[in-house]
Write a protein that binds this DNA or RNA. Structure first.
Length: 334
DNA sequence: AAAATCAGCAACCGCAGTGAA
DNA sequence: TTTCACTGCGGTTGCTGATTT
């Protein structure tokens, strides 16, 4: 048996709202509030609309201080940065942009911002040599920033859960094996060592590392809803099969970054938390094969345009490292 | 000028989480 | 503890105006 519908669909009006309906709803809510019950609201207002429809109309259009129109560059940056960090969690992103609705931001990303980023960076890319030298040049600076960051933001934002694919974007400055060993020893973590000198740790342990070792990836601190364990060795192996080589050791020699094809094509990814597959595909095409004919949609083209705005610094991890062509978003100024 | 295509966006749908009974 | 009504969210759909052919 299916779930009972929230309203009698045969007797509710659907489609675009008329100005009369808008003013009725607006006037009623401004005078009486929602009463905490959207389902009964249409009756009270005298509208033949579904309660959910009323709620949506109010939240996305009628409520005070809604901002419409062009997004500013700063807003663009915030959206991009948060998207790369937490994926398509539009309500959280919207919370960083007063006056903007999640629906607005979602539409803006899907129809314009993604394309805008691709286009802009394609132009940039034409004038830049294909080396990762700028990353190396700033390596120490970034490490220093990491150190500072973890020193001051150890309790950052445990409220979020991070999509598994997000690891793709947030890793990797993974500790080397011996770094982990030293870290574990120094901090009394109980790591399990495999015979192949790989280190297996749980999410909790990784969380502990992250708060004490500035080299660990910040985003992993928040993997608290992921039950699987993770492994850091020469690469990082999240549960979804995405494989990314680390890290500091191979800074100049990234060439084995890849994505598990099944994971990439899987339709079973958590629908509300996945990072846009098209973006994953961009990453895939730009990292697995450096001879790809179509480099117009690579991750390389998206990430450099994203600067890290101070206003969200307290909320999400600011550091993203992504193999040879990627940048530390927000740390390496263009 | 008409038809086809594209882009933007409002609205809908259905799932998951929450809290009250 | 279970059930269920309700809310909130993200993905998707489809309408409309703009642009291209």
């Amino acid at each position: 048996m299916g779930r009972a519908p929230c309203c009698d669909k045969a007797n509710v009006k659907r489609g675009p709202w008329s100005p009369e309906e808008d003013s009725k709803l607006k006037a009623y809510i401004e005078q009486h509030g929602t009463g905490g019950n959207w389902i009964t609201l249409p009756q009270k207002v005298g509208l033949k609309r579904c309660g959910k429809s009323c709620r949506l109309r109010w939240l996305n259009y009628l409520r005070p201080n809604i901002k419409h129109g062009e997004f500013t560059d700063e807003e663009d940056n915030i959206i991009c940065t948060l998207y790369m960090s937490i994926g398509s969690r539009w309500s959280i992103i919207a919370a960083q942009l007063p006056g903007r609705t999640d629906n607005d931001i979602k539409n803006y990303w899907n129809t314009r911002l993604k394309k805008k980023l691709l286009l802009c960076n394609k132009q940039r890319k034409d004038h830049r040599p294909r080396t990762g030298s700028y990353i190396n040049h700033n390596k120490l600076e970034v490490m220093k920033e990491h150190e500072n960051f973890f020193a001051t933001h150890q309790t950052i934002n445990n409220a979020y859960s991070w999509p598994s694919q997000q690891i793709l974007f947030s890793t990797l400055i993974a500790p080397q094996n011996h770094d982990l060993a030293e870290s574990s020893s120094a901090n009394s973590h109980n790591f399990q060592y495999s015979s192949t000198d790989e280190v297996y740790i749980s999410q909790d342990q990784l969380c502990q590392i992250s708060s004490t070792n500035q080299l660990a990836s910040m985003n992993l601190v928040n993997g608290n809803t992921c039950n699987s364990s993770v492994m850091i060795s020469n690469g990082y192996y999240p549960s979804n099969g995405v494989v990314i080589n680390n890290g500091l050791q191979e800074y100049n020699n990234y060439n084995s970054v890849g994505l598990d094809h099944d994971a990439l094509n899987s339709t079973s990814t958590t629908h509300s938390q996945q990072v846009d597959k098209s973006v994953l595909e961009m990453v895939n095409s730009s990292t697995i094969s450096t001879t790809s004919q179509d480099q117009s949609t690579s991750w390389e083209e998206l990430s450099p345009l994203v600067n890290y705005p101070p206003s969200v610094f307290e909320t999400v991890s600011p550091y993203y490292v992504f193999e040879e062509q990627s940048l530390y978003m927000g740390l390496l100024k263009q």
